[in-house]
Design a protein around this nucleic acid. Sequence first.
DNA 1: AGCACGCCGACT
DNA 2: GTCGGCGTGCTC
Length: 814
Amino acid sequence: MNFAQIILPLNLKGTFTYKIPSDFKDKIEVGMRVLVSFRGKKIYTGIVFQFHDEEPEGFLPKDIISLLDDAAIMPQSQLQFWQWLSEYYLCNLGEIYRFSFPASLKLESETYLKLKPYVSVAFENLDVHEMHLIHALEVRQLINVTEIEAFIPKKEIVKTIKSLIDLQYIEIDEKIAETYKAKEVAYLRLKNPAEIRASLPEILLSLKRSPRQQELLLSILEHETEFAGIPLKKSQFLDQGNFGTAPLKTLISKNWVEEYFMQKDRIELYDGETESREQLTPEQQTATKEIETAFGQNQNVLLHGVTSSGKTHVYLEIIEQTVSAGRTVLFLLPEISLTKQIVQRLEKKYGRQLGFYHQKLSDFERVEVWRKVRNGEIKVLVGTRNALFLPYSDLGLIVVDEEHDSAYKPREVSPFFNARDAALMLANFYGGRAILGSATPSVESYFLALKNKIAHVKLRHRFGNVNLPVVQIINFKEAQDSKKSVGNFSLGVIDEIKKQIDRHKQTMILHNRRGYSNVIECESCGYVNYCSNCDVVMTFHKFSNEMKCHYCGQKAAKPKACPRCNSANLNLRGVGVEQIHEEISRLLPDAEVDRMDVDSMRKKFAYEKLYEKIEEGETDVLVGTQMISKGLDFENIELVAIPKADSLLYVQDFRAEERAYQLITQVSGRAGRVSGEGKVMIQTYNPEHPVFKLIAEHDSTEVYTHLLAERQKFHYPPFVKLIMIEIKHRREDKADRCSQFLGSVLRKYLPEECILGPEKSPIAKLNLLYQYQIWLKLPRKNYAEYKSLVMKSLDEVEDIPAYKSVKKLIFVDF
DNA sequence: AGCACGCCGACT
DNA sequence: GTCGGCGTGCTC
């Protein structure tokens, strides 16, 4: 055990070899954080990955400078998970490390040093640099590594620090411990409640000349009676009762009331009534039993329940079982905005044992959750995909809610992994189980269930045996031909919306295209307005009166005349959600019509405000993009209309039909949740399209049979394994040549039928980078072999210096 | 990744 | 004559 392989927070292949100094040998553990120097002067926090005794060839390993933890900060199972991720998704361990660790747990040259307390320094034994550093530390308590460069030559820095640490004169300042202090919050309570209650009349009498004090005391008493056991937050209490601090101070000095402090919990404690466990319906009970059985047979579960069937109730039941068995639960959601409802319910039950983790937390908050997970304080963790990387010690259950959601595998941030599949693996490494839940499972998950790789548990009925909405397909061609249409709507849909408004019911209209119109075209010369960064037409947004590129975010003024031929005849083509909104507002002038899309929700609290407005029933019609399909569970929505349903299918993506099915079904699920009188109207030029027909029949089995047949016919997942490689460079010829070269190398090793491309990406230029794609369809059998040939090909391209600067992004299971 | 090194154009 | 552009190479 002379050497350690260390993971560094850099996007570099593999791990790095360091020597373990003899005095660390009995303390160092796999999963510990260590301080090492890399590239001479830079210092990094690394993770111990492995130990070994093989003397490396070709370089002299450096020593590990110091250990940052007393015990492993990363559990073994997590490290196994990292290793799997990096092998499966062809990404570097360093990338995973960077992505998954809060910044303050992986300090680099920003790491601070300090003198050890109560040491006497034998200056006569120090060299000049060591002396400088000690003197500097005597003047200022903390110095970071970069600052030391000012007075010690770069080459000598690490040596100096290391020698002083060895001499026990200085130590690494655990900034995390220092800067991270949970905030303390003041609470109020009666000092001696029993006594006060007993002699209340006398006390009140004694306070008769101080009405504010009287009021305050009674108020606290009332709270303690009504919400026994729930802490009373001082600031909130004073604000609500409009009390000043003066009467409170007097009460405290009179020893009636006391102020006490508790660590602030980022999740506010639920202070409403605690709800008793809801009774499961017979169907939910059966589902729970089926899940237990599957778990007993070491099987994971696909919980396939129609919208409003109460999947959450089943989750809660299994979560409770897991927690009472003493194990931890991870509840994954595709995005934070959907957490509201589930958190409210879990809060009541688990209080402080509930944690919350997502991209929008500050670093401090992340570290807090990290520690609580590590030391077992948190038993139930609700989070988005990055919550997979918390240091769980005993993960018994992972729930992946809305498992079909594409937010589980964003294309924008590396490492590119699918959180749903990763969750299955993570559960596996911990010896835990996973539930994938959805009303519209992904074709891949459905296939797993079909092949009995995971158990298929179904909930076929809506909660309370409420009927599923009636789906009506409207042949829009016919409506137009028979003059029964106005603009983008058939008269039937308009009439139905009016009918709903008369009944004081609400309507949702789905149109999944942002902006007002997606092309502005010159009538005389055919000019269209392209984004200067991307090979994409700019979309006109009437509301903000500007042109926007939906890919890079660039904005431009709307041209008044054609920039090429100066003609003023500019045509608007393509219908966006703003236009649908405008149209409905015009057709129904007395109705309250609102719009919900990323553009209108950008302002702070815009979402909350609109949410409330809908909840209060002030909104009659809500027009929106796919955003309206998530998290809007209102009782009063009875009608869902999709005026241009075909646009959902005309996307060049082999998952277009699956997505269309999921989106339509999800948004339909908003209609008639309680009444059972929901109605869905789909306008299309292809009324015979199987996806629309099967949605109308509510026959999900047939939908998946259809989707799977298509996938099999055209050789797409789950029948093959798909890897997409995207090659990007700011010079088109270079990206082109590099992709051609990679293509030829791949063809050297792989059969021709496995390789498609290289071709220009559907968006040939994005953010000033030209991009080309190569699609690999690899057989499931011997996949590992094929994949290693892909890796070999990539390595060969990597060896060409001219292509080093070309970015190569690899999407596995794209 | 990120940083130093090294080779060619536009400037005081 | 120099400053600085980014192509290239290397890091345990």
